[in-house]
């Protein structure tokens, strides 16, 4: 068995092909979505995965929850091989998943009942389901909406309910597949803050897939995917120092980082990989002090 402080997720050489079938049921086209991807995540980390549409990041996410199985390579989630069918429900309980469209993942017509859905599936006793639901709803700050209909909630609130539904299953890891893509800025902030809180307070491992560069600056590690491969990996600072490379990959950088990079290009002595407004203004203040001497 693996040792403590081990990787909660261990993927080696993950390869996956989407097959298209013609009218006679024969394969007429295949599309490589994962191409020998390695993915190792330590328990308790906050990992962000970036990549443009069709880069394979959603496919990778679905592998972690065993919604898709690797065509080649192996994937262990908390020590369980995802291809081992007898471990399937254990894996899904261990690695929860939140999807893009909040409407399409809420099953029940009342908030609390939706949060109870996962534990019900796991066969948790009634009394404990209620305890879990309450704890989960409080953790995402949606307790006061427990009796509401999901249709009456904002996008950000619905996504928080979806997150609560996953937390109630007591997972060690949550995979979020573009959870903020359909939300307005307020909703995005709510969701990201909730996720960061869960990571810091509860120690839940987070794998966040997103298009929004601003959402990844707090991650422990950023993975960039392109054409089914992992092309960059490192801390946010390391990743965002490579502005031009990110642009080539059809990705942007946070605007502050871009401004810092532009100023550096114009000849100012500014360090690489600036991520926040404070970092930028401090660097600029030093530049100005230098000019005046």
């Amino acid at each position: 068995m693996r040792e403590k402080n081990r990787n909660i997720i261990e993927g080696q050489g993950l390869t996956y092909n989407y097959l298209h079938y013609d009218e006679e049921g024969k394969v007429d086209a295949s599309q490589l979505a994962l191409d020998h991807v390695d993915l190792n995540v330590e328990a308790g980390q906050f990992i962000a995965i970036l990549g443009h549409n069709g880069s394979g990041k959603s496919t990778l996410a679905k592998q972690i929850n065993a919604l898709l199985l690797p065509g080649e390579g192996t994937l262990y989630v908390d020590g369980n091989d995802t291809r081992d069918e007898s471990k399937l429900w254990e894996i899904r309980q261990c690695a929860g998943m939140v999807f893009q469209n909040p409407d399409n993942q809420i099953i029940a017509s009342v908030v609390e009942e939706d949060v109870g859905f996962g534990p019900e599936n796991m066969g948790v006793p009634t009394k404990e389901i209620w305890e879990r639901a309450e704890k989960a709803l409080r953790a995402v700050d949606m307790w006061k909406y427990r009796g509401s209909s999901p249709n009456r909630l904002s996008g950000g609130q619905k996504q928080r309910v979806a997150i609560a539904g996953v937390i109630a299953m007591k997972p060690k890891c949550i995979v979020l597949d573009e959870p903020t893509a359909m939300l307005d800025p307020g909703g995005r902030k709510e969701v990201i803050e909730t996720v960061r809180e869960l990571n810091r307070q509860e120690g839940i491992t987070v794998i966040l897939i997103t298009h929004y560069m601003e959402e990844v600056i707090h991650a422990d590690r950023v993975i960039v995917m392109d054409s089914a491969k992992v092309v960059m990996t490192g801390t946010p600072r390391e990743i965002f120092s490579q502005v031009e490379k990110l642009r080539d990959l059809r990705l942007g950088v946070p605007q502050v980082t871009e401004l810092a990079w532009e100023l550096k290009k114009a000849g100012l002595p500014i360090p690489e990989g600036i991520l926040t407004i404070e970092e930028l203004t401090q660097a600029l203040d030093r530049v100005r002090a230098g000019c005046r001497e």
Binding site: H52, N53, M182, M213, R250, L251, G252
Partner: peptide, 10 residues
């Protein structure tokens, strides 16, 4: 541009 990646947005 809702839900699009950065390049697609631009």
């Amino acid at each position: 541009t809702a839900g699009m990646d950065p390049k697609g947005r631009d």
